[in-house]
Amino acid sequence: MSEAKSSQDEEFREYVAARSAALHRAAYLLTGNWATAEDLVQTTLTKTYLAWGRIRTTDSVDAYARRILYNTNASWWRKRSNREKPTEVFEDRPDLSRDFTEHTAMRDAMWRHIAALPKRQRAVLVLRYYEHRTDPQIADTLGISVGTVKSQASRALAGLRKRLGSPAAALGLAMEPKEAA
């Protein structure tokens, strides 16, 4: 192996060590499933490695990897949309509901609503609210215009508001009636 190739491989290993946790977090927020997120990150890192010689000297390695992550997720979704069908019940999944705190239940309920959004709207919300990206950064990452980012965010939030209604009703929680003073 040449010394230049060895140096490139070491730089890539350092990049993976420094950024893989953030990529896993973003992938999980996009997919809502750790196993799929791990596959998505693995594919992203493979594609990034293949382009490493071209991109490693630029300041945009992270932007390149994130764009691959989001585009690959969209591509997978398009391919799977005709084959996989969601289900409400997972027979092989243990019932862990008694171990959850109220906070966890609320977070999970919110993620169910977010997961029901169209892929692009979900990606915009993840980038904006969980990755703290600006609209121009989101537009660049997803390869869309800033106006599309704003309209997708607006539609996503309107959809969530409509679905959620009152927080208690949306989460299936019974509200205790307030006592009259």
Rank of each mutant, 00 (worst) to 15 (best):
T58F: 02
F100M: 15
L117S: 05
H113P: 00
H113D: 10
R67D: 00
D62P: 00
S2H: 11
G172H: 04
R93L: 15
A139H: 09
G53I: 00
L96G: 09
S2Y: 05
R120D: 13
K150R: 15
P86I: 05
A139L: 08
P118K: 06
E14T: 05
A158I: 01
T72F: 01
E102S: 11
E11A: 13
R107K: 08
A181P: 14
V16E: 10
I144K: 10
D59P: 11
T44D: 10
A51R: 15
T87L: 13
V16S: 04
D140E: 15
R13I: 04
A153V: 02
S2W: 03
M106I: 14
S60P: 02
T101A: 03
I114R: 09
T87R: 14
T31F: 09
L50S: 10
G165L: 08
R56N: 08
S151D: 10
I144P: 06
K5V: 05
T46M: 13
R122Y: 02
T57Y: 05
N82A: 14
L157V: 13
V124N: 10
V41T: 15
L125K: 08
P177F: 00
L173W: 14
A180C: 01
L157M: 09
Y49E: 04
T36A: 10
E176V: 02
T57V: 03
I55V: 15
P136E: 10
D59A: 13
T44P: 07
E131M: 13
Y129F: 14
L160T: 06
R112D: 12
V126A: 14
R67S: 15
D9H: 15
Y64D: 00
A21L: 11
A168R: 06
L50A: 09
I114C: 11
S6T: 05
H132K: 13
R54F: 05
N82M: 07
R80W: 04
S166M: 02
V149A: 04
S166C: 00
T87P: 00
D59E: 11
V61R: 13
A156H: 05
P177M: 01
R19S: 08
F12N: 01
K47D: 09
M175I: 02
